[in-house]
Amino acid sequence: MRVTFKIWRQESNSDDGRFVEYEVDNISEEMSFLEALDSLNESLVQQGKGVIAFDHDCREGICGQCGVFINGRANGPHSNTTTCQLHMRSFKEGEVIVVEPWRAKAFPVIKDLVVDRSSFDRIIQSGGFITAKTGTAPEANSILVGKDIADSAMDMAACIGCGACVATCKNSSAALFTSAKINHLNILPQGKTESSKRVLEMTERMELEDFGHCSFTGACEIECPENISISNIAKMNFDLLKAKLFKG
């Protein structure tokens, strides 16, 4: 099939970016979207031009490294998917496909479609863990975790840290990401001890990283590849209020 890619090119963070159009005609419907970009890059090399930089790694929807804005939507036309799981059969013959990086103040562009998401790492570093050194764990079955609790923790722990929630949010809020991690650990008996500290410190870090506030539009949960629900944000806010009220 033949399509036109209109792709954001930007040399580095300090340069101004611009859209560049590329017509490609050797695309097949079975190709994944990223394979179509591979193919475009291969033809750029043959023309002696530098390739378009985009992030990707596992290409099976689990590592969270890929992710671009496609025709105005995070990860393209389908809900709850990653960019690597998108296939060219989702586009029409002759379509113009606009491809942009995640746009958020907390995710500065590094080059072309590649952004810096280290702000997510710093949120995790501020409290997204259980303080227990290797070697200190009790026998696993000595702490019972009900199936409903384990299943619910798994729903939230499934977050792949891709940043689609931030990219799609009109406020560039990281509330869905942060709440998923807080709730995953806070509802488990192993993580309860530090729950107040965790919610206070992680939400504080989130604000320091220039993410916007959440205004509950629900856009994030439509794009989240792991179907993480915005009810997590309500739970986080509830825990935050509780932690602030009973602090000290």
């Binding site: 070697g135 696993a140 798994m154």
Partner: peptide, 22 residues
């Protein structure tokens, strides 16, 4: 065996029975 203890303590939501055991 101690590895399962370790990861449970780190918050891995391993599959459980209704009674709470792994």
């Amino acid at each position: 065996a101690p590895l399962i203890d370790h990861f449970s303590q780190q918050g891995v939501p391993f599959a459980r029975e209704y009674g709470g055991v792994l």
